[in-house]
Computed example of a mutant assay.
Amino acid sequence: MALKTSYLANHVRTLKPSGIRRFFDATAGMTGVISLGVGEPDFVTPWNVREAAIQSLEDGYTSYTANAGIPALREEIANYMNDYFCVSYKPESEIIVTVGASEAIDIALRAILNPGEEVLVVEPCFVSYAPLVTMAGGVPVTVQASAENQFKIHPEQLERAVTDRTKAIMICSPNNPTGAMLSREEMLRIAAFAKAHDLLILSDEIYAELVYDDIYTSFAALEGMRERTILVSGFSKDLAMTGWRLGFVCAPEEITQGMLKIHQYAIMCASTMAQHAGLEGLKNGRKDVNEMRKSYRQRRNYIVESLNEMGLSCHRPEGAFYTFPSIRSTGLSSEDFAHRLLENEKVVVVPGNAFGESGEGYVRCSYATSMAQLQEAMTRMRRFIAQL
């Protein structure tokens, strides 16, 4: 009997590979490469956090935890959200510790979406958002932010995209890849839109601690928004814990308990060792977070000035650790620019179109690398631009 043409589900077979990972495969085996591509801190996880994980192993904490996470960690997350973002959650029923923020987004979408329901996805955005909507049975509807508006979305754009099938809006602020951050006033306008259309907001706040020139506001802290916000965050960016794969999600109890069902069957629980490390980070990691933020601010100022000086127009990001300069003045596409820069000067940047169609004409440059590496990368990029 002949085999089927493909055993893969249609929605999986048609998914495009990650634009970030696909590009980085090209760097395999190359030497002397400076990467401004990976969204990962160049810092090592603080020692006291690593030590807490080691101590948990020595103390024999090697079994499963509660599905939702260690109670002490959930309590500390609740304290953290209340102390720093002025929003209150019940640790016993409204917080789940997840395997990174990525799992939190995945189970949130699977918990809220019926087949065919739509999610407004604000672009440019992280590469996983639209695929995760698709894999949850939903339909991603992209709403494109523009450089003219500093890559911030306006309610009028959302109004043009909303339908009677729309269930939620996905927003990341500060944004990956642009570094743009919504002001409180801009958030209030989006919140009013969400209320008017009875929509949820899935708010990716993983970069909330990496804000440089303003005060961060959480969507859940806005009046009337706690009950319609799914707040996703984690430990990867501010505590340099990317490899630990530890995140969390806070939401109203009905939604969180629905997410917990999926988490129970698919994951069981986050790593026990990582949870003990995260607990220490929340309790005693404030000094390290502040030091890292100070360093990122210095690097941001340097790279933005350098990019603008070489003719690559670049807005000043308010948060995260990315710049999103325009490369349109070179006459190259985002893909061509990134590939030629890699081939000629061994500098890695990510083509802007990896983050959606509105990213074409831009590249993402991460400044989560040392100042010495940044300075050398800018020298090479300046030379590359001069040769075009």
Score class of each variant (00 low, 15 high):
Ile206Leu: 03
Pro177Tyr: 02
Pro174Asp: 01
Met181Asp: 08
Asn175Ala: 05
Thr178Trp: 04
Ile206Ala: 01
Gly179Val: 05
Glu209Met: 10
Pro177Gln: 03
Phe193Cys: 11
Glu186Arg: 13
Arg184Ala: 12
Tyr212His: 15
Glu209Pro: 01
Met181Trp: 01
Val211Glu: 02
Asp198Leu: 06
Leu210Lys: 10
Ala192Ile: 06
Ser173Gln: 05
Ile190Asn: 12
Asp198Thr: 03
Phe193Val: 11
Leu202Gln: 04
Asp198Gln: 13
Leu182Asp: 12
Met181His: 07
Ala194Gln: 01
Leu188Lys: 15
Lys195Thr: 06
Tyr212Ser: 09
Ile206Pro: 02
Leu200Thr: 07
Glu186Cys: 06
Leu200Val: 05
Arg184Gln: 14
Asn176His: 01
Pro174Arg: 04
Ile206Glu: 15
Lys195Asn: 08
Glu185Ser: 15
Ala208Cys: 14
Val211Gly: 03
Met187Arg: 12
Asp204Phe: 01
Asn175Arg: 04
Glu185Phe: 11
Leu199Val: 08
Glu209Ala: 07
Asp204His: 12
Glu205Thr: 00
Ala194His: 07
Glu209Gly: 04
Ala192Lys: 15
Leu182Thr: 04
Glu209Thr: 00
His197Phe: 13
Ile201Asn: 01
Pro174Trp: 08
Ala208His: 10
Leu202Cys: 04
Ser203Gln: 02
Ile206Gln: 02
Tyr212Phe: 15
Ala196Met: 13
Glu209Ile: 00
His197Trp: 11
Glu209Phe: 01
Glu209Val: 02
Gly179Phe: 03
Glu186Pro: 03
Ala208Gln: 14
Ala208Thr: 12
Tyr207Ala: 09
Asp198Tyr: 06
Asn176Gln: 04
Asp198Ile: 02
Ser183Val: 09
Leu200Gly: 03
Ile206Gly: 00
Leu199Phe: 09
Ala196Asn: 15
Glu185Thr: 12
Leu199Asn: 05
Pro174Leu: 02
Leu182Cys: 05
Leu202Arg: 03
Arg189Val: 09
Gly179Arg: 02
Arg184Met: 11
Asp198Arg: 10
Met187Ser: 09
Ala180Asn: 07
Leu202Ser: 00
Ile190Met: 10
Asp198Ala: 14
Leu202Trp: 00
Ala208Gly: 07
Ala191Lys: 13
Leu199Trp: 05
Arg184Asp: 10
Ala191Leu: 10
Leu199Tyr: 09
Ser203Ala: 15
Val211Lys: 03
Ile206Lys: 03
Ser203Glu: 07
Leu182Glu: 13
Tyr212Ile: 04
Tyr207Gly: 01
Ala196His: 14
Arg189Phe: 09
Ala191Ser: 15
Ile206His: 10
Phe193Lys: 11
His197Leu: 14
Ala192Asn: 15
Asp213Lys: 11
Leu199His: 04
Phe193Ser: 10
Met181Tyr: 05
Ser203Val: 05
Gly179Ala: 02
Gly179Pro: 01
Arg189Trp: 08
Arg189Leu: 12
Ala191Asn: 12
Glu185Ile: 13
Ala208Met: 14
Ser183Ala: 12
Leu188Ala: 13
Met187Glu: 12
Leu182Gly: 03
Pro174Val: 07
Phe193Thr: 08
Met187Lys: 15
Arg189Asp: 14
Asp204Pro: 02
Ala194Lys: 05
Gly179Asp: 06
Asp213Cys: 07
Ala192Asp: 15
Ile206Ser: 05
Pro177Arg: 01
Ile206Cys: 04
Ser183Ile: 09
Met181Glu: 13
Ala208Tyr: 05
Ala196Cys: 11
Glu205Tyr: 06
Pro174Ser: 03
Leu210Asn: 10
Ser203Ile: 04
